[in-house]
Simulated assay, not measured.
Amino acid sequence: MDTDAGLVERYLEHVRVGKRLADRTVTLYALDLEKLQARAREAGVALTQVQSHHVRRWVAQMHGAGRSGRGIALILSGWRGFYAWLGREGRIASNPVVDVRAPRSPKPLPKALSVDDSVQLAEFEDGEADPWLEARDAAAVELLYGCGLRVGELVGLDVTASAAARGWVDLQAGEAHVLGKGGKRRSVPVGGKALEALRHWLALRDTAGAWPQQAALFVGRHGTRLSSAALWQRLRRRSLRAGLATPVHPHMLRHSFASHLLQSSGDLRAVQELLGHASIATTQVYTRLDFQHLAQAYDAAHPRAKRKG
């Protein structure tokens, strides 16, 4: 009769040889099954006698000890595969892990810059950079932070409106018209600083090449539409050169736009419309950022919040 250790060894051989899993994956399976054996020994049951209530209790214990929901889910996945194999081998009647789920991990808060850092990035002028690239990147930053655009919406902008355009900026009206998620169009106001940066970029845009037929507002050195990946790279470089401690990506500026607007206005519906969220529940995550900002201000300023060292 197979011992618990013997069953585990047979299963690991099955995934190593029969499923041809990578050595690293097999090692992770072995570690997860070591945890299972330890839990079963503590409960005084053999691996083939484990029931769903045992697994649920062990999940609760792991969660209470601080293991993340994702970490627990990975462990359960390993256990589930082991018991599925035991079922195929005729060693158990039902899989005790099949209906057990890991606790949900709280969604992390979106990363937003402070107001000071956002302004520092927007006002940064890289005197050592190519003036053409500097003008383009500065205009991109102003639109990302000033309008809360997604990176795909930004690089999809054309110079002028047309039937084929996914989006464009009306400089005279001070509005950006973009095509968002789900093919939804929306219009957002463009602030004075962004309009100034755009006019400066447009004055330089075609000086590096003969690209009058290129519809894209933001182009690269070869006259093709600027890609999202290239913009990520440029923004990361620019944020570090501007002296920010955290490398910035485009969506961080969208988060910063929403957070700072909500802090100032408190108008959740308006922020929802400006961001183009289909559901206000998606926008409500920024109220958590707003509360975090208030809590930090309280901790820093209120005499009853200060603790002795």
Rank of each mutant, 00 (worst) to 15 (best):
W211I: 09
G174V: 03
D158V: 00
L244C: 14
Q213G: 05
L47E: 07
S259C: 07
S52I: 14
A60W: 04
H302T: 06
V178D: 04
L226I: 10
R10W: 05
T3E: 15
K308A: 11
R288L: 05
T3S: 15
G78R: 10
R221V: 14
S162R: 01
V26I: 04
H53L: 11
Y145S: 09
I92W: 04
M252S: 07
P212T: 00
A112W: 07
A176E: 06
G87A: 12
A295S: 06
H293M: 11
R91E: 11
G167F: 03
R166T: 06
Q214M: 09
Y298A: 15
A138N: 03
E13S: 07
I92G: 02
S77A: 14
V100Q: 02
V97L: 08
E175C: 06
A210R: 13
E125W: 11
E125S: 12
V8R: 02
V271W: 02
L144E: 03
L195G: 08
R166K: 09
G148D: 04
Q263F: 06
S162Q: 14
R288Q: 07
D267K: 04
V26E: 14
D170W: 03
V151R: 04
A295M: 11
L226C: 01
W85P: 01
Q272M: 08
W201P: 01
R186T: 08
A270D: 02
V115E: 14
L289H: 02
Q49H: 14
V100A: 09
S227H: 03
R41F: 07
A297P: 14
A93R: 14
S52V: 15
V98P: 01
D117F: 15
A139E: 02
A197C: 05
A138H: 03
V169C: 03
K308S: 12
A165M: 07
R241L: 14
K35A: 11
A161I: 05
R39C: 09
D117P: 00
L21F: 07
S239Q: 05
H255P: 06
G78D: 06
R80Y: 07
E125I: 13
G148P: 01
R304M: 14
Q263G: 11
V115T: 11
T287D: 11
V8H: 02
G148W: 09
G167P: 04
P131I: 03
G127V: 12
A165K: 00
E9P: 03
A84F: 11
A40Q: 05
H63Q: 09
V100F: 12
A278L: 04
R307P: 11
A176Q: 05
D23G: 05
K306I: 12
H222L: 15
A40F: 05
V15S: 08
